[in-house]
Design a protein around this nucleic acid. Structure first.
Length: 467
RNA sequence: GGCGCGGUAGCCAAGUGGUAAGGCCAAGGUCUGCAAAACCUUUAUUCGUCGGUUCAAUUCCGACCCGCGCCUCCA
């Protein structure tokens, strides 16, 4: 079985493979850096990351481009309010975004492209669209005339044929011929940053940056374009219109969209005020990988209701896998190998792969891992697990961690050094030998207070740091 | 109103035309000096409601109810 993905264009799950050679050309809509990203935003970025990792696990190379929207109305508004340039203002949040991404263990796309680094190319694209008659000007701004693109609506599956033209006014008070027309280029206004370009003085509309940067780096036709479901209309619909009128080629073969993160059953959003940033969560003492696990475990096309109970549950589930990992890596097993257990591992990895191939069904993939863990724990309890089975157990854990990447605890900044922990464990061992259990328990509590958890096993003492 | 998604145990959640994975929580138990970890048992005669097709439906069809999202900036 090979990778299949739900394509918003066709509303079907379809086999996915790159069109040319072995490289997947993928574009994802990145953050608008006007504020800290919230964990709803990060649900989508984690989805990109899982998708990336599984595309590579499938055996493809990746050329993944993600934009940074570093010029837009909110950035301008906030920068002006602080008497900063938009560059100064957005730099801070771009940095914060990548810090958060790193703590969530998100792989960095092959190319990260800021909008402000591509203004002239956007202007040139707009000029070309104008040459071909797809645009019109109004008060110095340039609009895309959707009436010229009959396929408009094919992604969002909306029918615009009955849309009546008429003078309507959008939020920015720009005049448009048709309510659905969208702005490609905004005329310079007072107190706003602008660029002098072949289409005049002003700044780009939002949608054009993605079209221009995607085509520039990945070619006329992408294999895959991803984003949150709220971008289907109008953003991605507009990208298609611009791009396909520009190149006269299909813009993207696959469109893949992640569902929302909800809070109290409602979309998490800045405007509703019901959002948490990653920093909010971490300050409550949760490890970033807990957030990663929580957001990755629910398949990306299902809305996920965020709760702190869910977060706690995620932390415990990670612990279960880590305990098993520790048991595999530190256990003392008899020589030899139990063929049944290697076969069992095969079933687990096979189930995991099949689930991931099926439109990234992470929930089912996890089921496969947890069933394996239970069976092997049982085998270990019965002393049926052999040293020769360690390799296949590690293979299951490696496959799990290739996607979920939560086994490694985020390093505590102020932990007790390993040597001190070992020394204390030695001290406790002596106390136990002398049957001084009170003393031994005291040491255990002392260590626990410092985040060290001691476990006595028949093979000796095992310890770990509290997550 | 149009388009799309969803309603499965206390919570999260997978799934198939033949009788419900997995995780968390809870209770009891095994093991242990005590813990921890691990394991065992218990927890949905039932999958929003009502019809239909079928030998058989949670899974297919229809109607209805409820929730969410997009249709305006938005992951």
């Amino acid at each position: 079985m090979s990778l299949r993905l739900y394509n918003t264009l066709t509303l079907e799950v379809q086999p996915f493979a790159p069109e040319r050679d072995n490289t997947v050309r993928m574009y994802t809509c990145g953050p608008t850096v006007y504020d800290f990203a919230h964990i709803g935003n990060f649900r989508t970025f984690i989805f990109y990351d899982v998708l990336r990792r599984w595309i590579r696990a499938t055996g493809y190379q990746l050329d993944h481009v993600m934009n940074i929207t570093d010029v837009d109305d909110k950035i301008i508004r906030n920068a002006v309010a602080r008497r900063q340039s938009i560059g100064e203002y957005s730099a801070r949040f771009t940095t914060a975004f990548f810090e958060d991404s790193e703590s969530l263990r998100l792989e960095r796309p092959e190319r990260v492209t800021p909008a402000t680094g591509h203004i002239d190319e956007m202007a040139e694209a707009i000029r070309k669209l104008g040459e071909q008659g797809y645009t019109y000007e109004s008060d110095g701004s340039i609009y895309f005339r959707i009436a010229k693109f009959p396929e408009y609506g094919k992604l969002s599956h909306m029918d615009f044929s009955g849309t009546r033209p008429g003078a309507r006014v959008d939020n920015d008070n720009y005049e448009k011929d048709d309510a659905r027309d969208f702005v490609l280029w905004k005329a310079a206004k007072e107190n706003e940053p602008y660029w002098d370009t072949v289409v005049g003085r002003g700044r780009p509309g939002w949608h054009i940056e993605c079209s221009v940067m995607a085509i520039r780096y990945l070619g006329d036709t992408l294999d895959l374009h991803a984003g949150g479901v709220d971008l289907i209309f109008p953003h991605h619909e507009n990208e298609i219109a611009q791009s396909e009128c520009l190149t006269h080629h299909l813009f993207s073969r696959f469109w893949v969209h992640s569902e929302f993160l909800l809070v109290d059953g409602q979309k998490m959003s800045k405007s509703l005020g019901n959002f948490y940033t990653l920093r909010d969560i971490l300050s409550k003492g949760y490890a970033p990988e807990t957030v990663r696990y929580l957001l990755a475990q629910v398949p990306y096309r299902k809305a996920l209701n965020f709760t702190f109970d869910g977060l706690k549950s995620a932390a415990t589930a990670i612990d279960r896998v880590r305990n098993f990992d520790l048991r595999v890596k530190t256990g003392k097993f008899e020589e030899g190998s139990n063929p049944d257990l290697d076969a069992r591992a095969q079933v687990a990895t096979g189930g995991f792969r099949a689930a991931m191939d099926d439109d990234l069904n992470t929930a089912e993939a996890l089921g496969s891992v947890f069933e394996y863990i239970r069976d092997v724990n049982i085998a270990m309890d019965k002393d049926e697990f052999r040293a020769g089975n360690v390799a296949s157990a590690k293979a299951v854990l490696d496959l799990f961690d290739l996607v979920f990447d939560v086994l490694r605890p985020t390093a505590a900044t102020d932990g007790l050094p390993d040597e001190e922990v070992e020394a204390k464990i030695e001290e406790r061992r002596d106390a136990k030998k002398a049957r001084n259990f009170a003393g031994a328990d005291q040491i255990r509590v002392w260590l626990l207070d410092r985040g060290i958890i001691i476990e006595d096993t028949k093979d000796g003492v095992r310890w770990k740091r509290k997550p």
